[in-house]
Design a protein around this nucleic acid. Structure first.
Length: 444
RNA sequence: GCCGGUGUAGCUCAGCCCGGUAGAGCGGCGGGCUGUUAACCCGUAGGUCGUGGGUUCAAAUCCCACCACCGGCGCCA
């Protein structure tokens, strides 16, 4: 039997129910309870019908004997189809034959909403399940992932508020690229060109001059035909930006944040992780190892036989191999200036590299976050924008910030789907989303 | 955008090489069963074989084109 953990079930009970399934224990033996939910399994045995009832908190076996309920209840129980919404009343009974040792012996049973034959069967393939995503999200596996994603976000907010961060909401509709290179989704905006944002970062850089430490949990959009298990066209990030911060400051913050989230997940949800997602997960310990980009190239050459010229970004294989060399998250720092976005601050000691870092997950999961120090100097920023052939006029307000007292500042963005996929041990980031968006899928 | 693969019943697939009346399992529907654990037993319905063209007496099968999707690469969170 499945039971969720750490969910406060007391505050809201509706529709006449007396309990949620997770609350039904041996201690309630003999008590009369009313439950609502969905038919998860059904087995008919003539005068006896077994129903495994599911609600948002778990499952429990219900027995409906012909002789112990009224005629209409028994008729409903025989007729009811999988995933129909139902309401029932019965007595809690201990019975070793029941899964979990406790069952409900129904005294009445009522169909609230009769379902058509359920299209999802044990043979369903992954494409079909995505087509049926609106129905498949009822499964315990999907439910658990979506729930843990919610918890991951809650823990991130919890942590950031403890650290004095202010949550802001940056615009989703924008007029210019946040970074060069990546393609934006265009849209019509009353006769003008506008786009969907790919990052809140530039707006956060404005916000820190008011609120000092800000973060946002928001979607980003990339119109790239990426066909990988790490990309979606619509994805969510937690992005932090801090005034008067150094590169080391944001790396420390990231390792504390990620560790906090992982510890809380294991502390409060290890059972679901193990039993439903089959995931053995150990929270990382601080500090995370830091290696420079140049050291990473050496490691790849020595340990994986992958030879990359200095100044070239890691490919998928290199990133995966590097990721497998560690057993907990680690930072790769000081990426070459030529492969980083225009806003990254070059290292004053060696302008060939930037004060930037990617946080990498172990086990082949690869990049979780990307961050660094932003350029505060007006002239340098103009130079970098020109070097990357970006339209200067698009960035005029962003450049303007550099004229009006912007301090040294730094920030980072963590991919929520990637973090969730790593913690839950999933193969594909799309499995962490309610309705994934990929180049080939905008429906359902 | 590039490389590889797949497309046949509601679902998962076989049949294709070697052309000759379209198959299985699961699910559905009808019936039976008072202890099942994604029960079991009996019966039954269900198909423009991705689309278009070609070869042939005959095409799911051979040829050509196109489309859709999957896996990987590139791009990145």
């Amino acid at each position: 039997m499945i039971k969720v953990t750490k969910l406060d079930l007391s505050p809201l009970k509706t529709f006449g129910k007396t309990h949620y399934i997770a609350e039904i224990t041996e201690k309630l033996e003999g008590e009369k309870v009313t439950l609502t939910g969905w038919v998860y399994r059904k087995r008919e045995h003539g005068k006896l019908v077994f129903i495994i009832l599911r609600d948002g908190t778990g499952t429990i076996q219900v027995t409906i004997h012909k002789d112990k309920v009224d005629e209409r209840s028994f008729k409903d129980a025989r007729k009811v189809s999988l995933e129909s919404a139902v309401k029932l009343t019965g007595i809690v009974k201990r019975d070793p034959r029941a899964p979990g040792g406790v069952e409900i012996q129904a005294t009445s049973f009522e169909i609230v909403s009769l379902a058509e034959p359920w299209p999802i069967t044990k043979d369903a393939g992954k494409v079909f399940l995505l087509d049926m995503r609106h129905l498949h999200i009822r499964s315990f596996k999907v439910r658990t992932i979506l729930y843990l994603r919610s918890e991951i976000c809650r823990y991130m907010r919890e942590f950031l508020h403890k650290k004095g961060f202010v949550e802001i909401h940056a615009p989703i509709i924008i007029t210019a690229a946040c970074e060069g290179g990546a393609t934006l989704f265009p849209l019509k905006y009353f006769g003008r060109k506008a786009y969907l944002t790919q990052s809140a970062q530039l707006y956060e850089e404005a916000a820190i001059t008011s609120l000092e430490k800000v973060y946002t949990i928001a979607p980003g959009f990339r119109s790239e035909k990426s066909r990988t298990r790490r990309h979606l066209t619509e994805f969510w990030m937690v992005e932090c930006e801090i005034a008067f911060a150094t590169h080391e400051d944001i790396m420390k913050l990231q390792e504390e944040l990620v560790t906090y989230v992982c510890e809380k997940i294991v502390e409060e949800h290890e059972k679901e992780l193990k039993e439903i997602l089959n995931r053995e997960f150990k929270p990382p310990t601080i500090p995370f190892e830091r290696i420079t980009y140049t050291e990473a190239l050496d490691l790849l050459r020595e340990k994986a036989g992958i030879e990359l010229p200095w100044g070239e970004d890691f490919g998928a294989e290199a990133e995966r191999e590097l990721s497998k060399m560690f057993d907990q998250p680690f930072f790769v720092t000081h990426f070459p200036t030529v492969i980083r976005s225009f806003y990254h601050q070059p290292d004053p000691e060696n302008p060939e590299v930037t004060l930037s870092s990617d946080l990498m997950a172990p086990e082949g999961y690869g990049e979780l976050s990307s961050g660094g120090v932003r350029i505060s100097d007006y002239d340098l920023l103009v130079k970098r924008i020109k070097e990357q052939n970006l339209p200067l006029e698009s960035y005029s307000w962003y450049l303007d910030l550099r004229k009006y007292g912007i301090p040294p500042h730094a920030g980072f963005g963590i991919g929520i789907e990637r973090l969730t996929a790593w913690i839950c041990g999933l193969e594909h980031v799309r499995d962490t989303t309610l309705f994934p968006r990929t180049p080939s899928r905008v429906y359902p």
